[in-house]
Simulated scan of single mutants.
Amino acid sequence: MLGRLHSYKCPHRGCSNGGASGGLLAAQVTAGGGFGFLAAGYRSAASLINELSLARGLLHLTPSDPLPIGVGYLAWQLEEPTANPEALLSAALDNHVQAIWLAFGNNLKEWIKFIRNYDAQHKRARPTTIFVPVSSVEEALVASDEWKVDVLVAQGNESGGHGYGSAPPLFTLVSSILAALPKGGPPVLAAGGLATESLYSDAQKKALVAAKHDMTVRTMAFDHARGTLHWPAGVDGRGLYNHTVKDMDNGVDVETVKVKFEAGVRDGDPDRMLVWSGMGVGLVSEIKSAEEVIHELGDDILQRLKVASELAR
Rank of each mutant, 00 (worst) to 15 (best):
E51S: 04
T62M: 11
A55F: 05
A75P: 12
L48E: 03
Q77F: 03
S64H: 04
S53C: 08
A40E: 09
T62L: 06
Y73G: 05
L58F: 00
W76D: 13
G70F: 03
S64K: 02
L74M: 13
L78G: 15
A39N: 13
G41T: 14
I49D: 01
T82Q: 15
G57N: 07
A75Y: 12
G41A: 15
D65N: 10
S47V: 04
E86P: 12
G57T: 00
A87E: 14
P68C: 06
G57F: 06
P85K: 11
I69Q: 00
R43I: 07
A87I: 15
E86D: 15
L52A: 03
P85N: 11
S64R: 09
G57A: 09
D65C: 12
A39R: 08
T82D: 15
E86C: 14
A87P: 06
L48K: 01
P63C: 07
P63L: 02
R43K: 15
Q77I: 02
E80Y: 09
S53M: 05
N84R: 04
L58T: 02
T62K: 13
N84K: 08
Y73S: 07
A87M: 12
P68Y: 08
L61M: 09
T82I: 07
L88Q: 08
P85Q: 14
P85S: 14
W76T: 13
A55I: 03
W76K: 10
Q77D: 03
E80P: 12
E51A: 08
G57C: 05
L54C: 10
P66F: 05
P81L: 14
A39W: 12
Y42I: 13
N84S: 11
A46L: 11
N50R: 11
L48V: 06
E80L: 12
E51G: 02
A87H: 05
L59Q: 04
V71D: 10
L78R: 15
I69C: 06
E80R: 12
Y42Q: 09
A40Y: 09
L61Q: 04
E79T: 03
P66W: 02
V71P: 09
A46M: 01
Y42T: 10
D65V: 05
P85E: 12
R43Y: 05
I49Q: 00
A46Q: 02
G41M: 15
E79G: 12
L88D: 07
E80M: 15
L59M: 09
P85R: 08
R43H: 10
I49H: 01
A55V: 08
L67Y: 00
A39D: 15
L74I: 14
A87L: 15
L88K: 08
S64P: 07
Q77L: 04
Y42W: 11
A83S: 15
N50Y: 03
G57Y: 02
A40W: 09
P81V: 01
P68T: 00
A87C: 14
L74A: 13
S44R: 01
G72C: 07
A75E: 13
E79A: 07
R56Q: 05
A55D: 00
D65W: 00
Q77G: 04
L78C: 14
